[in-house]
Design a protein around this nucleic acid. Structure first.
Lengths: 121, 121
DNA sequence: TAAATAATTGAACATATGTTCAGTTATAAG
DNA sequence: CTTATAACTGAACATATGTTCAATTATTTA
């Protein structure tokens, strides 16, 4: 028998096949988990989470947000695009101004649920 | 008056000071938003979100998880440490095996709320 | 039409992140 | 004590990410 040291693949005899099979059966489809991870990843940045919170309080233009966050319009605009791509925010044009707001209530729920978690740490 | 092209700082006259002040007053403390962003960031990875889901179904050892995800124990172990550091999972040692489970229900709620969001896309 | 300005964009840069690989630790069994 | 194995770790690597800077677009106003 070949000697396999530092092997990184599990030996069959050592995990619980029944339990693994049961979980595997319930596993969400790959694309759903990828989309979910992507959503969380987008929320997982300080600048973007600040934008999300600000927009949960009021509809704001890029200028307002930049001012509120103490950063540049460029940075805000770049991050708003990321949020737009994930359909987390929507926008409305009025002349030269563009007003942003949250796309739906789910985002606020996610934010609040997350906040409840970290406030318990 | 000096000509300032390509200026990236907002001219005072163009944003709504009242609205900005109102939002600023409600702004969550910096450390809370940072912690929140960090939590979302940790959930924002395909490998880790799969681990979270698997552990929401059953307590599992590293081997089981690696098998379920089709990846190596090393990768799983690295990511479990990240989850441990954020107190998203807990573990229990039994001989050579280490069994992992979710730390609390908040995580499951976050996961479910996120899933509800992406399922509407 | 020309100037001003809100917003967007692309490139460049430094930094952060996830996986792989090799090796180590802890525990159980011979 | 030696071997086997589950789990962990650190370094290295490639890739991804966020901000800055400069330039551009779209729109308003003189």
């Amino acid at each position: 028998m070949k000697k396999k040291k530092h092997e990184d693949i599990c030996e069959v005899d050592f995990f619980d096949p029944k339990r693994v099979a049961s979980v595997r059966k319930k596993m969400k489809p790959k694309h759903a988990l990828q989309l979910l991870a992507e959503t969380f990843r987008v929320l997982g940045d300080t600048t973007r989470i600040k934008i999300i919170f600000a927009l949960s309080q009021a509809e704001l233009c890029v200028c307002d947000i930049a001012n509120l966050l103490g950063t540049t319009k460029s940075t805000v605009s770049h991050q708003l695009r990321v949020l737009r791509n994930m359909r987390l925010v929507r926008y409305r044009k009025e002349g030269k101004m563009v007003y942003y707001s949250l796309d739906d209530e789910h985002i606020k729920n996610l934010f609040d649920e997350g906040l409840r978690h970290v406030e318990e740490l």
